[in-house]
Amino acid sequence: MRKILTVMVFLSLLYLTACSGKVANNDQSGASSKELVVVDYGGAMSEAMQKSKYEPFEKENDVKITIVSPTDVGKLKAMVDGGNVEWDAVVADSDIALRLEQEGLLEDLDFDIIDKSGFMPELVTTSSIGNELYFTNIAYNTDVFDEDNHPKTWKEFWDTEKFPGGRTLHKSPMGTLEIALLADGVSPDELYPLDVERAFKSLDKIKSEVKVWWDAGAQPAQSLATKEVVLAAAWNGRVSAAKAGGAQVANEFNEALAMADSWIIPKGAPNKDLAQKFISFVSQPEQQAEYSKLIDYAPPNEKALDLLPDEIKENIGRSSKDAENQITVDIEYWAKNFEEINEKFDNWLLSN
């Protein structure tokens, strides 16, 4: 009997050992033990980021990136205030990033590991660094206007006699007030602080020709393509995408307004050290150049421009010719003044 019990115990031990071995093998199946939650705006931008930035980082660092879209600033604030942060690295508009920093809702970036050399200084703060550069620029329908005969300045955009037809403008004061002042003759180096009342008077002159006040980036290109309007203040990448899809639209980069979004880390992020490493990686010129090869947005790291062919630099508005007369939007000004000016802008839209 004891022999039988001994054999049974021995067999039981063999079974348990085999099972434990299987568990160990499952743990080493190749799945990453590290996870990073990254938040971006979704769509084509997110797809390009996955190929040029996220997937290379995963492979190089044995990390699984979980993507959440779109960026929700209200949710980020609630997470930080509630002490229950789920996100690690977030893309946000650069002016919003600065506001969040000023409210104490972000981790400081570690510039001992993040190389900020080559970055536009306007897009580097204590808690943020530029992700992509895009433009609010003149766009036009190429059935109505050709390459030689279309508005090339905002003053000409305002000239409804020389260039007749409906317009579309962004339903936001940021960028819209700047182009209104440029149209009224203000020099680019004298834009800030904005003369808000002068901007509204300038907008009064063209308000009747603005057929669409857009609040989604795809709208201007769609309105141009259907000839609902013939001229637009639009985001360059959306126009480029529509053109690639066969729409009769084009960008004009003279007097374009350079705007950006930036990388941030919410205060209390669960994997903030890994997030610092991630932001360091995606800020490198090589990753930024690869991104601009996939989508028509420019790298804020100007070292990446040296890695791009001339054709792409022209498509993203960063040729030497285009760059001469472009204006960088002052994010510090808007971080401080947006709420007050936006209220005035909304009231102006509702007025006759």
Rank of each mutant, 00 (worst) to 15 (best):
G217P: 12
G217M: 10
Q219I: 14
Q219T: 11
Q219V: 13
P220L: 01
A225S: 15
A225V: 13
T226R: 15
K227L: 10
K227I: 12
K227A: 11
K227D: 12
V230Y: 14
V230H: 06
L231C: 04
A232V: 00
A232C: 08
A233D: 03
A234T: 08
A234G: 02
W235E: 00
N236Q: 05
N236G: 10
G237M: 03
R238M: 13
V239N: 00
V239F: 01
S240D: 09
A241W: 03
A242I: 02
A242T: 08
A244Q: 14
A244H: 07
A244P: 07
G245V: 07
G246N: 09
A247G: 11
A247I: 08
Q248I: 02
Q248L: 07
A250S: 15
N251M: 03
E252F: 01
E252L: 01
A256G: 15
L257N: 02
L257W: 04
A258M: 14
A258T: 11
M259P: 03
M259S: 09
A260V: 08
D261P: 04
S262F: 08
W263H: 15
A269E: 10
P270G: 13
P270H: 11
N271A: 08
N271P: 11
D273E: 15
A275M: 11
A275L: 10
K277N: 13
K277E: 15
F278L: 08
S280E: 08
F281R: 06
V282A: 05
S283G: 14
Q284V: 04
Q284L: 08
Q287P: 01
Q287D: 04
Q288H: 05
Q288F: 05
A289L: 03
A289D: 09
A289M: 05
E290S: 15
E290W: 02
Y291Q: 08
S292Y: 07
K293E: 12
I295N: 00
I295F: 01
I295V: 11
I295T: 02
I295A: 00
D296C: 00
Y297F: 01
A298Q: 02
A298N: 07
P300L: 07
L305N: 07
L307N: 07
L307S: 12
L308K: 04
